[in-house]
């Protein structure tokens, strides 16, 4: 499992989720802190492509052996792609939470929502 890291260039939601903005779409995943708290991930239950997600609400579930956790959407929009590789290799969420462990790509609904998210420094300050 990788060491703690919170890359610059991502936007962070206080419920330990990140978003990487790329024009009108964004990639979502969970932070190093979240995967560490959860332990070894054994299952990722993705949403379906086309589903609308709302900032601050759950859009997927991630499970370890003895815990299950809602994954919170950092921004609102429509799911345009899910990371199909996580079905067979959910451990990628632990091994590479910001890379191969990405969860969904979303066509953003409201660019203004990004104002409410944190940068890496602010998120790390929240973690204390």
């Amino acid at each position: 499992m990788a060491d703690a890291s919170y890359p610059d260039g991502l936007l962070y939601h206080p419920e330990h989720d990140w978003a990487q903005i790329d024009g009108e779409t964004a990639t979502f995943g969970i932070t190093w802190f979240a995967q560490d708290a959860l332990g070894e991930v054994v299952f990722f239950d993705p949403p379906q492509v086309g589903v609308q997600v709302t900032q601050g609400e759950s859009y997927a579930e991630v499970e370890s052996v003895k815990a299950v956790s809602d994954v919170i959407a950092p921004l609102s929009g429509e799911i345009v792609e899910v990371n199909a590789d996580l079905a067979d290799a959910p451990e990628r969420i632990n091994d590479d939470p910001y890379g191969e462990g990405w969860m969904v790509k979303v066509k953003l609904a409201d660019a203004g929502e990004q104002q409410g998210l944190m940068d890496a420094a602010a998120y790390q300050a929240q973690l204390g």
Binding site: E63, V65, K66, A67, V68
Partner: peptide, 12 residues
């Protein structure tokens, strides 16, 4: 597959 069960997922 214990995450299905009541002692973990509780009301869900």
């Amino acid at each position: 597959l214990q995450t299905r069960e009541q002692h973990i997922r509780r009301e869900k």
